[in-house]
Design a protein around this nucleic acid. Structure first.
Lengths: 149, 149
DNA sequence: TCGCTTATTTAGAATTATTCCAAGTATTGA
DNA sequence: TCAATACTTGGAATAATTCTAAATAAGCGA
């Protein structure tokens, strides 16, 4: 954990997958590299298209499988903001998502403190493993897609 | 607002819809009553089935339209926790959702304070209108569906 | 109250998103 | 190196949501 940053992305990923009993495969590595190389919020479909550039034989089913594996071993987050397709996010720092209801874009926003479980009234036998915070609203005045609204 | 609780659910809903330029229709009223009469987290499909009991002619397209109208005028919340269908929640008190990753059930959890925007670093020209907080983890030891996992 | 304008409803088709399947392939541990 | 089994593949199947065009009904003003 404290030394993860010393590993190359391959070793890092391999280790994280192994911790969950998942195998390190070429497909998962390519999907992971796609996600860390462009830190936006692509859908599975977009990940599929980007991954095909370096791994043309990959299938959609494998993209879903890989994304699930990466989420399970916590190197990627799944983001569900609306009724549409799920999005994936490789920024694992504590952060929330701002989702513009006018243009649909999703932005990472830093949390000033990390989210604290005690603010919430959870039954004592529930185990909280993660917290997702999504803000909704409208993004910048300068947003092209928002202006015409 | 402060006097909304003095209105019957019909008048209340009618007023809220009108504030957003939306019409008060029999279908929207039935969908709304379905949601407030059972405070769980049904999907559009489940809302459709329940609403048909009091309004058999209603169509799925109208259920989606009604749910969107109710969300727009803020008498109902849309809850997106996973890749599956969106869920709808008529509890409008400040609360978060706890989603059990083992059995899939969603629970309302009270917030000790209402969520505060200032905890988050949002660009100054962004307008935050609402905040959704979702906790993930595992629910009670006594949960039937969880035990076999 | 009547009529007009326009939002809403409807059924069903179309589209989009995700999951399933069975056969072949690759990874891991012994 | 070998066996066991997890993973990948393409395509079919399913699930979730949106679209469409014609019929209907709200709400406003006279």
């Amino acid at each position: 954990m404290a030394t993860d940053h010393l590993l190359g992305s391959g070793e890092f990923l391999s280790k994280r997958l192994a911790e969950k009993g998942l195998r390190f495969t070429s497909q998962r590595k390519h999907v992971y590299e796609v996600l860390i190389s462009q830190r936006d919020h692509p859908t599975a479909e977009e990940v599929f298209m980007r991954t095909k550039q370096s791994k043309p034989e990959i299938s959609m089913a494998t993209v879903y499988n890989s994304l699930d594996a990466l989420v399970k071993c916590k190197v990627v987050r799944q983001v569900n903001v609306d009724r549409g397709a799920a999005m994936y996010c490789s920024n694992m720092n504590a952060h929330a998502h701002f989702c513009c209801d006018d243009c649909g874009k999703v932005f990472d926003v830093n949390l000033k403190d990390s989210p604290r479980v005690p603010e919430v009234d959870v039954p004592s036998d529930f185990e909280v493993r993660s917290i997702d915070i999504a803000l909704h609203g409208r993004c910048s005045d300068k947003c092209e897609e928002c202006v015409q609204n």
